[in-house]
Simulated scan of single mutants.
Amino acid sequence: MLKFNKPLDLPPQLQWKYANEPELMTWSIRARNYNTFIANAMFWFCFVAITAGSSFLYRSTKEYLVFNAISTLLFFIIVNAALISMTHQRMNFAYRITQSGVEYCEWKDFPKWALTFLKWFTGMMAIIFIYLATIDPTFLIGALIGPGAMGLMYLSMANSKTYQRMQTEYHHHFLHWKELTKSTVATNRVMMEHEYSVPQEGSIYMTIGRQYIFFTPKDKERVTQLIKNNLLPGTPYVFGKVDVLN
């Protein structure tokens, strides 16, 4: 049985800084750490355009209907898969709350499953086109354009260290309770926003910013109440819309 809610394990590149302190609460989650409204709007706009383009591509050719249908379906699947990978990316988060503050790690590993999927999908499409080529040699052109291009894409992704580094991230964050200047419980997403002010090392100036805490709906009450109880007296704790600025 697949366990889609299995807790995420920290990668070896990340370690808890305050692991010696008893934890008040810990959890992990995969979340979209960006403005999802814009991303969703972009997805649906592009999806409609891709669907219209696929329909036009299919209707533009009257001959070789089987080849045309397969090539159109291939175009539709590949382009939409690329679109979803851009608009619905998720980051891995692990949170740990202690008496000292809020500590969390975020990371994104290179998606090796994408390479496996692309390899098997390319192989299946190549077999289909080779079989169709026994009926009509014209399908060999389709095999070069479709599965051939996908094979080149697979090789470039699998062998490009630069591309793999671009798809990999590891970050560690910690905020003391005294550094939090405001906490906002989002009304438009299941998350919190923390504004903070941290002294710059060797400087009289402060670093001002905001961090986002993601959690599941079933943990919302427990997380928000725990954070509220540990904020310093006088720290604003409000409810409102949060626009993720990442």
Rank of each mutant, 00 (worst) to 15 (best):
L14F: 01
N92T: 00
K17Y: 07
V48E: 05
P22A: 00
T216D: 13
S55Y: 13
K6H: 11
T162R: 10
A39Y: 07
L175M: 02
I135L: 15
T207W: 08
I135V: 07
L144Y: 13
W27R: 04
L232M: 13
Q164N: 07
P11L: 01
N188G: 03
M157L: 14
Y154E: 02
I130G: 04
N35L: 06
M166I: 14
I130H: 03
F47K: 01
T61P: 00
I70F: 08
M25R: 15
D219T: 09
V79H: 05
I50D: 00
K108Q: 12
E201C: 04
F37I: 15
N229V: 14
T138C: 02
M91C: 06
K112W: 14
I213P: 09
K119A: 13
E221N: 12
E201L: 09
A81R: 15
F239T: 15
T224W: 04
V242N: 01
T181Y: 00
T224H: 04
P217I: 04
A126M: 13
M25Q: 13
T162W: 15
G151S: 04
A149W: 06
I38V: 14
S54Y: 01
W16V: 07
R189G: 02
G101I: 00
G146L: 13
S55A: 15
F117D: 00
I227M: 10
S156Y: 01
L24G: 02
M91P: 04
T51A: 10
Y196I: 09
I38A: 10
K108N: 05
S203V: 02
L24K: 12
K112M: 09
I128D: 05
P217Q: 00
S156W: 03
Y212Q: 07
W16G: 06
L2T: 11
N188P: 10
F67G: 14
F110E: 08
G148K: 05
M192P: 11
N92C: 12
L118D: 07
